[in-house]
């Protein structure tokens, strides 16, 4: 079942169109910055983008910061929101469940497929950004934001950890969308619902009056991956980010399971 879902994911043109779009945006930004030789003023624009003119080694981090606020979560929400609701809308969910397949198993297969898309898209963004960054800006030695030098191995480890952290953060989005996908027969509604949650969270994170709830908002620690580039690594927000996403993932997957395994499937 899991292999079937993974094969379906890989065979679908939509998967690769989304991945290509995600990779294209940072590439376009890199080309503009390289041609004009004008990076955003330090402290403005996406994280690390002001530093890429000196070295492209950290462009994967800048690329993830570019797609993280909107494009990446929307892509993940579209895929996760479609997972169950898409089958229902196409009228195939009933037939899927007629086979000797438990609902929990089907949900796990959909979850693994969504997880695979998330890791695939984040990894592709990082890999293409590294290639584009080194090609356009070179691979000079880089330093941490704390002013200490990074070896190539140091930088590589931190980029890999960034990919894992951003991927984990996107799983929180995926679990919300997957839960909504079990509630509705419309993939669009499920995806928009997840995006709505993220928009609300992003708004509340910037609102001082909402300070009491900010530590619990799903987007609160997304940009904490920047702390990987401090020396020593500041683990406080990273650990909180991992823990908070674990809670969202656990709660919404449990809710998706409780709903999907007990709902009346009519389509």
């Amino acid at each position: 079942m899991i292999l079937t879902e993974l094969a379906k994911l890989v065979r679908r043109p939509r998967t690769w169109v989304l991945v290509a779009l995600l990779c294209a945006l940072p590439t376009v930004v890199a080309v503009f910055v390289a041609v004009q030789e004008i990076a955003p003023r330090p402290g403005t624009g996406p994280a690390f983008l002001s530093a890429v003119l000196d070295s492209g080694t950290l462009f994967p981090a800048a690329a993830l910061a570019i797609v993280l606020p909107l494009f990446l979560p929307v892509a993940v929400a579209v895929v996760a929101g479609e997972s169950v609701a898409g089958e229902a809308q196409a009228g195939t969910l009933r037939y899927l469940l007629l086979r000797p397949v438990g609902r929990t198993r089907l949900l796990v297969a959909k979850l693994v497929s969504t997880l695979a898309f998330t890791l695939l898209s984040v990894s592709f963004v990082a890999l293409t950004a590294y290639a584009v960054g080194v090609a356009l800006f070179g691979s000079a030695e880089v330093s941490s934001v704390s002013g200490t030098e990074f070896s190539t191995a140091d930088a590589t480890v931190r980029i890999v950890l960034t990919v894992l952290y951003v991927g984990w953060s996107m799983l929180g989005v995926a679990s919300v969308a997957l839960f909504l996908s079990t509630l509705t027969d419309s993939p669009l509604v499920a995806a928009l619902g997840a995006v709505g949650v993220l928009v609300a969270s992003t708004l509340l994170v910037t609102l001082e009056a909402a300070a009491a709830v900010q530590p619990y908002l799903p987007t609160r620690y997304w940009l904490a991956f920047i702390d990987l580039y401090r020396d020593p690594v500041l683990t406080r927000d990273l650990l909180r980010g991992v823990g908070l996403q674990a809670v969202y993932i656990g709660v919404f997957l449990a809710a998706a399971w409780a709903n999907f395994t007990t709902k009346d499937v009519t389509s």
């Binding site: 330090p42 994280a47 934001v145 704390s146 940009l223 920047i226 702390d227």
Partner: peptide, 27 residues
Amino acid sequence: VDRLTVAGETDVVRAGALTTTWDSADR
């Protein structure tokens, strides 16, 4: 003492009588 911003740091380092400030934004 490192002042941590979203995308960088402004650090003040004291060593004896010398105070050094590092601004990661403009290096």
